[in-house]
Design a protein around this nucleic acid. Structure first.
Lengths: 350, 350
DNA sequence: ATGAAAGCGCTAACAT
DNA sequence: ATGTTAGCGCTTTCAT
């Protein structure tokens, strides 16, 4: 020990410096009263409260989180679990979650699951481990069965970007289909007919819904989807690059427009085109989805995804549940917005 | 209660479903033994261990985090505090931190502080509240005095992108000066002499260091900095746009090159130039700093900041401290890397 | 190798 | 309005 009273060696922790007992002794009040002050109970006289606070200040008291959590059965913490950390927009969603969490004096425990088994295990641990008061799950790939069971746990749970099937859960998602339909309609209104679509990975919720939106728009305009113009991608930029490159290498004719179901793939397409001296929108119109930062800089027409809104809405729902709102299934669907930029502006038209 | 045994009403929480006591009863072993199994103690016979595990499985036991933390005085959690959430690269740093944390079976508590007082309060709460075993602080604006005091706390702390002055702390940062010097030298080697520099906000650690690197490079090449060509920015893209626009609006001649001390400002400059039909690098060379995603797509020459590395290194240091490494001051300086792209490629040169 | 029991620091009846 | 005390669920001596 040194003069400051703290052990400065390695990672060794000694017992907590100051406890309610210390404050109790110092102030001459009981631990119960100290606790009451800590919890802003109205049953303490201003004068005693002042005494306690003074003692706390003098001793440099900070309440022990684990002890409080154990006794109160609440942690004032919301858990947020994301799928593999490179899953794109986690940071935007997290910003949204945090905004509402901090407004409600809630802390955040953030975890990233790398694979399906880990996801399920993490969810279990958080649900039943008393580490958090509630859980927000982003786009996880867990079985419906597991989700249904988890929905019965005492810890409330909100799902982002993943349907809940028949589990009695609050879910938050964006209107992928409407967004895609709007973008596709935009291209059709521009007079384009031979429109290629680059989809995301098979079975991805977002990709599937966006594709449905495309079909819907084509149907309404009486345009039949051409199987040749349905390209498969992975949501990564290089898959857009690959798709475009191999199409051109095969000597096939440019479509009139290309709709990549997310921005990175659209940007990959753009690179492949640029490399060959082809120009957007002069030679081909291009649309993406999500409105990532780069889309703005590149002048890419795209559909804006309400990522922060998803986070905020999910967290809002969690807070309400924690405040006692009845647990009934509810699906929040946030709107997207078409952002028209250079990549679909017709050059010479009057 | 319903048949699942859980209360499905509002946010009400009842006592934890299954406890060590339950497992103890079910398995016929004492709670001590159950605890030993939970902690992988070697002092339990394989056979009894199996019995306990079986009971746990049957009952669906999950250990209570707060209770463990209270008893063991460890949380297996690392706290990460960021300044205001829009502070750019938090997500990349967080990815790095998480990589190492999960490799070491550590959880993450993430918090964002909006202002200085909140920062200090958060740090105190995390340092002394027993909520986390260690703390990683990113680029916070707290007083040196506070930091020095905090460094004495039992909870170890690592600072990212902020010097520790005389506090006995581990700090992690990137070599801003060397990065800027390399970029500037690149421009000078290209033959440019009239080089404008857009700085970041006054007093920012990153901005100041990068500027020093610029000066260093100029000095070595015998180029005197021209006050007219030192522009002030805010690190936001619009400030780059503004600086460039007002320069051109004033009818002043283009410099030969522009070095924006971060990418967003460089991109702002690019937009202002493009709007006026000026071209990069034909009319003016352009360099940024950080290598954000958009830089690649826009062909912007820039200096790559090792954001994930900062996170990883900081977390690594934390883990070592928790494992008992002596607490001595150490400054990790991670290298940057110059990424040359189109924006500084000389067009017609052989 | 296993058990009994005393805490960890705080909260929440219950009592006064 | 304040104090007493019994937990919260788990770990950890100390016995055996």
């Amino acid at each position: 020990m040194n003069e400051s009273g703290y052990n400065m060696g390695g990672g060794v922790k000694q017992s907590q410096a100051v406890t309610v007992a210390d404050v109790s002794k110092r102030s001459g009040l009981s631990t119960a009263t100290v606790s009451r002050v800590l919890n802003n109970s109205p049953l303490v006289r201003e004068q005693t409260k002042a005494k306690v606070l003074e003692a706390m200040r003098e001793l440099g008291y900070t309440a022990n989180h684990s002890a409080r959590a154990l006794a109160r059965k609440r942690t004032d913490t919301i858990g947020v679990i994301f799928p593999g950390i490179d899953a794109g927009f986690f940071s935007e969603v997290l910003i949204g979650v945090n905004q509402l969490a901090s407004e409600n004096d809630m802390h955040l425990a953030v975890a990233f699951a790398r694979n399906k088994p880990e996801e399920a295990q993490m969810v279990s641990e958080y649900l039943y481990g008393g580490r958090v008061d509630a859980l927000i799950l982003m786009n996880l790939r867990i079985d419906d069965k597991f989700i249904r069971e988890a929905a019965m746990a005492p810890t409330p749970m909100v799902l982002i970007d993943r349907p809940a099937k028949d589990a009695r859960l609050v879910t938050v998602r964006m209107d992928n289909a409407a967004g895609a339909e709007e973008a596709m309609t935009h291209l059709l209104d521009l007079g384009h007919r031979r429109i290629a679509v680059i989809r995301g990975p098979q079975g991805t919720f977002d990709s599937d819904e966006r594709w449905l939106g495309c079909l819907q728009a084509m149907k309404r305009s009486g345009v039949k989807p051409d199987p040749e113009l349905i390209w498969e991608g992975t949501f990564h930029d290089h898959s857009g690059y690959e798709a475009m490159s191999s199409w051109l290498d095969a000597g096939k004719p440019l479509p009139e427009a290309i709709f990549a179901l997310n921005d990175p793939m659209a940007i990959g397409v753009l690179e492949a085109l640029t490399e060959r001296g082809l120009r957007v929108p002069d030679d081909v119109a291009l649309v993406g989805f999500d409105d990532i930062e780069s889309a703005r800089y590149l002048g890419l027409t795209t559909v804006s995804s309400p990522m922060r809104g998803l986070g905020r809405t999910a967290c809002q729902a969690v807070v309400e549940l924690l405040e006692g709102a009845p647990r009934r299934p509810k699906e929040h669907v946030l709107p997207t917005e078409l952002i028209v930029r250079r990549s679909t502006m017709i050059a010479g038209s009057p």
